[in-house]
Amino acid sequence: MKSLLFTAALAGLSEAALRFACSTLSIQRLDPVVEPSNVPSAHLHQIVGGNAFNASMEPEDGDPAQKATCTTCTFSEDFSNYWTAVMFYKHQNGSYQRVPIMANDALPAGVNGGMTIYYTQQDFFSNGNKKITSFPKGFRMTAGSVTATSKYSKGLKFVCLQNKSTRFPELDEFPTQKCVGGIMTVHHFPACWDGKNIDSPDHQSHMYNTVNDAFVNSGACPASHPVRVPQVTYETLWDTTKFNNLPWPTDGSQPFVLSYGDNKGYGTHADYMFGWKDDALQRAMDSSCMFNACENGRPLKSQQPAQMNACQIKPTVQEKIDGCKDPSYLCHNYMY
């Protein structure tokens, strides 16, 4: 009886939340938020989303939703871009090999690598009866700091996967044991906006972070940042299993390194650039749909994995990725 009452109570709440796949758009050294126009950027990124992605995406360069012709994401009205640092395995000879990513098994089969993207309102079950405001055109933000030498934010996590459905425990740094299902990185972005600025010099000050661990309800927004926006989260599943039979360090550490040279994980970070078409995201946040129930025009247009996988961009930076002695600089084999 208790479970029936609980289910009935939940049914009376708005459950507007998005969870969807975005297949790989590109893997290259570009970062139009932190290093606009720099070719190449300081380190390698795993990039998904709309094919308007390029080295320079300043607001005056135009709306990605208008410039893009396709997207690697499930929702065909989402031309946003989402990216994070790439993971490498460090061999005993000092060379590095890129760790591939894999799709979440809660999402459609056939997605080419990619990332799981969330836009939640309060938690998995309720929007808390608060108005959720979509991001404005030109909006961008980052989560985490590449220079961090200790835990930077509650919302940045690692999970040692037993399988693709594992979500706990969440760790503050790389797991030190071999993970039979791979390693997941989780990036929860702040969800309180100042309501004025689409960016800030550090790409974070226009936001305020009240995020808790594991999609737990965020705290109230302060007066300085009063506008509640969707809670954006990335889950990236790294297939480290192929390296579990290779030699591991004998000092108790682990062999994985993020592409800016971090083997602890404290500097794990992610970038977001808004690119939803017209009022699509606001319509979704105003609806009562939940996850895949938001697809097929209810209220968002969606596409199949084959269409997502077909969306690609030509690399701006062409370089050898695997086998180099420094993941931050790779092999310096640049072709402009």
Rank of each mutant, 00 (worst) to 15 (best):
M141N: 02
T142Y: 02
T142L: 08
A143H: 07
A143E: 14
A143P: 00
G144E: 07
S145I: 06
T147F: 14
A148E: 10
A148L: 10
A148W: 09
T149P: 01
S150K: 15
S150T: 13
S150E: 15
K151S: 12
K151N: 13
Y152T: 05
Y152R: 12
S153E: 11
G155N: 02
G155P: 01
L156Y: 07
L156S: 03
L156F: 10
L156G: 03
K157R: 15
F158I: 02
F158C: 05
V159N: 00
V159T: 05
Q162E: 11
Q162G: 10
N163S: 08
K164R: 11
K164W: 06
K164M: 05
S165L: 15
S165Y: 15
S165F: 14
S165N: 12
T166P: 02
T166D: 06
R167N: 08
F168T: 10
F168R: 11
P169K: 02
P169S: 04
L171N: 04
L171A: 03
L171Y: 10
L171K: 08
E173S: 15
E173A: 15
E173R: 15
P175E: 07
P175I: 04
T176F: 14
Q177T: 13
Q177F: 13
Q177K: 15
C179T: 09
V180C: 07
G182V: 05
G182D: 05
G182I: 07
G182C: 07
G182F: 09
I183Y: 11
I183K: 09
I183H: 10
I183G: 06
M184V: 02
V186L: 13
V186G: 05
H188E: 13
H188V: 04
F189V: 00
P190W: 03
A191G: 05
A191K: 06
W193K: 03
W193D: 06
W193F: 02
D194P: 04
K196I: 13
N197E: 11
I198L: 14
D199M: 15
D199N: 15
S200H: 10
D202Q: 05
H203P: 06
H203N: 13
S205V: 00
M207F: 12
M207L: 11
Y208T: 01
Y208G: 03
Y208E: 01
